[in-house]
Measured scan of single mutants.
Amino acid sequence: MDPFVVLVLCLSCLLLLSIWRQSSGRGKLPPGPTPLPVIGNILQIDIKDVSKSLTNLSKIYGPVFTLYFGLERMVVLHGYEVVKEALIDLGEEFSGRGHFPLAERANRGFGIVFSNGKRWKEIRRFSLMTLRNFGMGKRSIEDRVQEEARCLVEELRKTKASPCDPTFILGCAPCNVICSIIFQKRFDYKDQQFLNLMEKLNENIRIVSTPWIQICNNFPTIIDYFPGTHNKLLKNLAFMESDILEKVKEHQESMDINNPRDFIDCFLIKMEKEKQNQQSEFTIENLVITAADLLGAGTETTSTTLRYALLLLLKHPEVTAKVQEEIERVIGRNRSPCMQDRGHMPYTDAVVHEVQRYIDLIPTSLPHAVTCDVKFRNYLIPKGTTILTSLTSVLHDNKEFPNPEMFDPRHFLDEGGNFKKSNYFMPFSAGKRICVGEGLARMELFLFLTFILQNFNLKSLIDPKDLDTTPVVNGFASVPPFYQLCFIPV
């Protein structure tokens, strides 16, 4: 058959498939802009700032609406009420993970971030239990974070109060905490193996944040037939998995079943207990991918939040002064901060919360999916439909947070200066898919920041009023603009 005829037939089939998918069930789905064949609503979305586009569309179609990214149908949730109703009140029905062709290629359905069903539930339950087990290797997770915080302070001392970009050092600290939990080992910041790991993690975040990856996920045929950065992403992930597998083999040879040292040991012990169960989800494949998931999810998000926190503290020296006064009063100079201190430091706690609220790190979270046909607000959402959640619409709700575009710790303080919780605080998402490392991340943010401010004054290279804190939105995360500062020993 003539190649031209084959091409026309293929394009015609794709067009018909697109029209059929977009028209099927439209009477039951939430409203939304009319999609174009094949490309859907992509032309109506700013790929570099999806969150802003969703906010604009919500003003037209309401808090629940339908979009098509290519052939992929998505239902968008915008605003606290619908997000709570879906992710919390109907948590089980909305607990699936959205379709990610690239991740599915890399992870093969294993791990904790992109798995679904029984596998996801069992691996998540085990990971939560293990991360909360403060007795691994007779050292609590808090001990590990405190140790890394001391190392971080010593690295900052080496800058000798000269101007520096904190990106690298602030990236090393949370990565080392995860390494300590998974591998029972922290690395020197100049260790070549550690630097290679950091390089792969950072490069992957840069790649994932590009519009090209959005295109690959919406048109998965590209993955096999086109060159691009997605190939580098898959190569980096394969490198990390190979490295983790080597460490798993080392653990198998040296493990003491009665004295687990780290996450890998705990997983291997669980595998041993379930070795007679042919349906067990505790396999080497799941261990390797879960460890890679924890490394990827637990490094860049925390380091970016820390980097943004220091920029905001530079911009608002009056806030920094209040935090340091609270540190001096509650902790002093002669001991290290600990998590028990947080309950006695409402202002510092409010500042950490406000940093996370203000920066809105992951504006749309990772997409969910419905696990069955769901009736939601008089609409029928078919099983498997991807759910896109606007966390921006919750964290920047102007009824809950007056002047949401302003950095103001009073958003989390009552009139008496006591810490005030808010149900709208969802930087880790909400419901059954809430970030498994939430507790660890909150511990790291509090301890790293208090250790830094206990030991250093922060000095800006320019007038604080002239510092730009506008986030650089890159399609996946909101990151701070480049800046330098000086760490002046107190």
Rank of each mutant, 00 (worst) to 15 (best):
L445M: 11
I213M: 13
L311N: 04
L195G: 12
G439W: 08
Y424S: 02
S23L: 10
L237K: 15
P481G: 09
E354K: 01
V436G: 05
L313T: 02
G439Y: 10
T386C: 07
T167I: 06
N378P: 02
Q192E: 13
T389K: 01
I47H: 15
I182P: 01
H230T: 06
P337Y: 01
Y189P: 08
Q340S: 13
F126V: 03
F219D: 04
H344K: 13
P227K: 12
T130P: 04
A441L: 02
L310D: 00
P367S: 08
T210M: 11
I213S: 12
G96A: 13
I182K: 01
M74I: 15
A350N: 00
I141W: 15
I244L: 12
A430H: 06
A441S: 06
T283C: 11
G417D: 09
I362R: 15
E325I: 10
E241W: 11
D49L: 03
L14S: 07
P427F: 01
A297Y: 07
R139G: 12
I182S: 03
D265V: 01
K421P: 13
L391Q: 01
E274A: 09
L388N: 00
D188K: 11
F282S: 02
E354Y: 01
F226H: 03
F219L: 11
C179D: 00
M198A: 08
N176C: 01
L233W: 15
R139W: 15
S140C: 10
F219P: 04
V355P: 00
P363T: 01
M1I: 00
L395A: 03
F4H: 01
T301L: 09
T290S: 10
A291R: 02
H344T: 10
G296H: 14
R73P: 14
G98R: 13
T210E: 11
F425G: 03
P337L: 03
V153L: 08
S303F: 04
I462M: 13
V177S: 03
D165R: 02
T167A: 14
S127M: 15
I331S: 02
D397Q: 03
L380I: 09
A173Q: 00
R433H: 04
R261P: 03
H78R: 04
K375C: 06
F267L: 02
P260L: 05
A430F: 06
P260M: 06
T167E: 11
D341S: 04
T290Y: 03
I178Q: 07
A103N: 09
L152A: 03
I141H: 11
S23E: 13
P33G: 00
C10G: 12
P35A: 10
T469M: 12
E328L: 13
S336P: 11
S58R: 10
G228Y: 08
V248G: 01
F168Y: 14
E93Y: 13
I215N: 05
R125E: 13
G439E: 15
D165M: 02
G298Y: 03
I141Q: 07
V351N: 01
D341M: 07
T130C: 13
Q484V: 06
L71E: 14
R97G: 03
E246W: 15
L447D: 04
K160N: 14
E444M: 03
